[in-house]
Nucleic acid binder design. Structure first.
Lengths: 345, 345
DNA sequence: CTGAAAGCGCTTACAG
DNA sequence: CTGAAAGCGCTTACAG
């Protein structure tokens, strides 16, 4: 593999000059620059990542800390991994996946990535309200950006869909259609138990909706086990005052829910209305559901920018001054009207 | 951040001794080893990744080359990214995501990762029958392992579900239930056009099924656009000899297909039977579909092992001897009987 | 406008 | 059983 010396020799200059041409951090004569660029092209030269990071203390890599879900896999990941990888690429960064090893949720993999200088900053997914990884990385003075909206908004730069407002908007749409008994089917209980920010904020939205609008909003957690989920739904629909509408923050379950309800003779939206909260386009299997979609591209771009900025300012004065806080991004919900909301019976 | 010198000082030994303790490549007295380990623990020492890779030419990183889908995103990715990251972790490797930048499909990001020594080997996803990335990496003598089964089986180590046998098995199950007119709904046409291995081999399976069993197997490509997909289905169901069964190699579309057919008054399995080929558990939204699931864990583990081995043997004699070829893994299909196959009418 | 030199933090022959 | 020393390929003050 070609080294900077090979390029220098081919271009008839010193290695340091090659480096300066590549970094653009010094004025170079057009002649020299052209010769160097030709040699780089000719030899297919790419700087050795290890040497570069050793010398400059910058790796050009962002660590992506995936959540440990208990269930092993958060389907939320795939889309975001793509989005982040692309956004990172636009900033000249590559993305390193860091999965939590087995039990430990403080992120041994993340710590290795941070201490071993595998990356310049980390993006944390599946953020919890008081996420231990934030404290751990702060301890190491390792920059992070959060995909999630923790209770302590100043603990780290973050971005998120406004889940609380999303559920409020979903309930409002249902109320405007005349619904007075809404079942809020939230995230799976494992996520609630872990106090993931989207779970907790979704529930807060449901509670606020009830308080503000006088709509009865029953809060029910979802389950990854369809049978268990349908049991919970059945218990609501078998009650004296069954819901006339659903707000569902567990979108991948929706096709199965529609099927289950249909098997009970309950048609959407004839008998019950439904709004999806925070779905991916593919979650709904091509069904035209009234929904608030997850703005993956926007969230990915935002959190990547925060991580890149945090990396750039690593080693700066620190969080002393009250001014200059990171520009966190809370993305407002956007309701897309599909075919699953009808006037209340 | 602590360096090897800090550890050496704390343990009262030479830096080289610390290195030997960590690598285990030299006999060390119990006393010395204990002292070093204590110092490592005490200081929270992790070797600097850049320095280590510069010196040893091993990065401990596997590049994961994601496919450019044209459509931007292959939902297949998320599961595999998790599976690969975990499998890699078990081998002591981290995973670096490499997304193809914009147009170029030969993998400029991959080339940068290879030439810049960001990784020791690459795993290629979304492999095409004659994948240009394989040739490009061979040119660089950069080790690869393929998630896919290319025409030239000796071009690189690979692993895959046996898609051809999977479709054959699906059609056989339908034939055994008495079905004589089967519609094979394959992958989306973009994947067929790109000659992705699973697309081409699925079609081969459909064709072989027809030839061998005397079953009429109509080959139809799927579409990411549900409306277009339903149009294609409708044209088949409106024909003189409509299919009595479907074999669907585009599982995320299945919930929508069931819904669409139901809207036409076609119930599964009462009026038409269905087998899913190569689905993720979550693709089916909790529906009890007769299916051949994608063995993600097994495929991830297998391809990771191949990549790790390829990395270990990088720089070996080369593909000269005919013996010692990589142990490719073609995983046979396993049919799970659900509730969507009934006897033909 | 360009070059010579130091040094980032490791690993691994070489030496004893 | 352990240590001193060279050197991986870069970047960046220092010098002219």
């Amino acid at each position: 593999m070609a080294t900077i010396k090979d390029v220098a020799r081919a271009a008839g200059v010193a290695p340091s000059t090659v480096s300066y041409v590549l970094s653009g951090s010094r004025k170079i004569s057009a002649e020299t620059r052209t010769a160097v660029q030709a040699a780089v092209e000719e030899l297919g030269y790419h700087p050795n990542a290890g040497a570069r990071s050793l010398r400059s203390t910058r790796t050009g890599v962002l660590a992506l800390a995936l959540p440990l879900s208990g269930r092993g896999y958060l389907p939320v990941g795939g889309r975001f991994m793509y989005g982040l990888s692309e956004a990172a690429g636009r900033h000249g960064y590559l993305v390193l996946l860091v999965t939590p090893p087995g039990q430990d949720d403080t992120g041994a993999g993340l710590e290795r990535a941070a201490r071993g200088r595998f990356a310049d900053a980390a993006v944390l997914m599946g953020v919890e309200m008081a996420d231990p990884r934030v404290a751990a990385m702060r301890e190491l003075e390792f920059p992070v950006a959060l995909m999630g909206h923790p209770d302590d908004e100043a603990s780290a730069p973050w971005t998120d869909l406004d889940w609380e407002e999303s559920v409020v908007a979903a309930v409002r749409a249902l109320r405007e259609a005349g619904h007075r008994r809404v079942l809020y089917l939230g995230t799976v209980e494992e996520d609630v138990g872990a106090r993931r920010t989207y779970s907790v904020r979704g529930i807060r939205g449901a509670e606020r909706s009830a308080a503000e609008s006088g709509t009865a909003v029953d809060v029910c957690h979802s389950s990854d086990d369809p049978a268990e989920l349908y049991r919970r739904l059945d218990s609501r629909f078998d009650s004296d005052a069954p819901p006339t509408a659903l707000a569902v923050q567990h979108p991948p379950a929706i096709p199965g829910i529609l099927r289950h309800l249909a098997a009970r003779g309950i048609e959407v939206p004839r008998d019950v209305s439904l709004v999806a909260v925070g779905n991916f386009p593919e979650d709904l299997g091509g069904l035209d559901v009234t929904r608030i979609e997850l703005p993956v591209e926007r969230m990915s771009a935002a959190v990547t920018r925060l991580a890149v900025e945090a990396a750039a300012h690593a080693g700066d004065p620190g969080p002393s001054g009250d001014g200059g806080r990171a520009p966190n991004t809370l993305i407002p919900p956007h309701l897309i009207r599909g075919a699953t909301v009808a006037p209340a019976p």
